[in-house]
Write a protein that binds this DNA or RNA. Structure first.
Length: 126
DNA sequence: TTTCTGACA
DNA sequence: TGTCAGAA
């Protein structure tokens, strides 16, 4: 089941294709890269080449934005995601304690409410 | 033709 | 975020 992950990580899509697949503008896609939300590879001609994983990532970002979460918030979401990944590795050697799980679920819900974009008086969270 | 970077009436 | 310029 590793071949699949490998294929999804192959950067073979030019930005034009990504635009159609994600319905995002080149401007937005490039901006998200500046913000470190995605890290597409570059080909010989300095052209961005995206993988299927990048597509999923962009669609995910799109959803967060639709839910009223700003760039800073999305960054935090991914930062927490990285921490989550490290914790899983540590979990192999030392299984998560009830306290770990509780703390993870804690800031999980806590964030969604705290990361709402500043100018939005609309709360779809209800 | 497509994409890249930088800049802003 | 859109959009234009100038280059590759």
């Amino acid at each position: 089941m590793k071949e699949k992950e490998l294929r999804r990580s192959l950067a073979v899509l030019p930005i034009g294709t990504v635009m159609k697949l994600t319905d995002l503008s080149a401007r937005q896609i490039r901006y998200y890269e500046e913000q470190g939300l995605i890290v597409p590879e570059r080909n010989a001609g300095n052209r961005r080449m995206f993988s299927l994983n990048d597509i999923d990532r962009l669609l995910e970002i799109k959803d967060y934005l639709a839910d009223g979460i700003n760039m800073a918030g999305i960054k935090e979401v991914y930062e927490l995601q990285k921490q989550r990944a490290k914790q899983k590795q540590a979990a192999l050697a030392r299984p998560l304690t009830d306290d770990d799980v509780r703390r993870i679920l804690h800031d999980e819900f806590l964030n969604l409410g705290r990361l709402q974009s500043d100018p939005g008086p609309h709360y779809p969270a209800h």
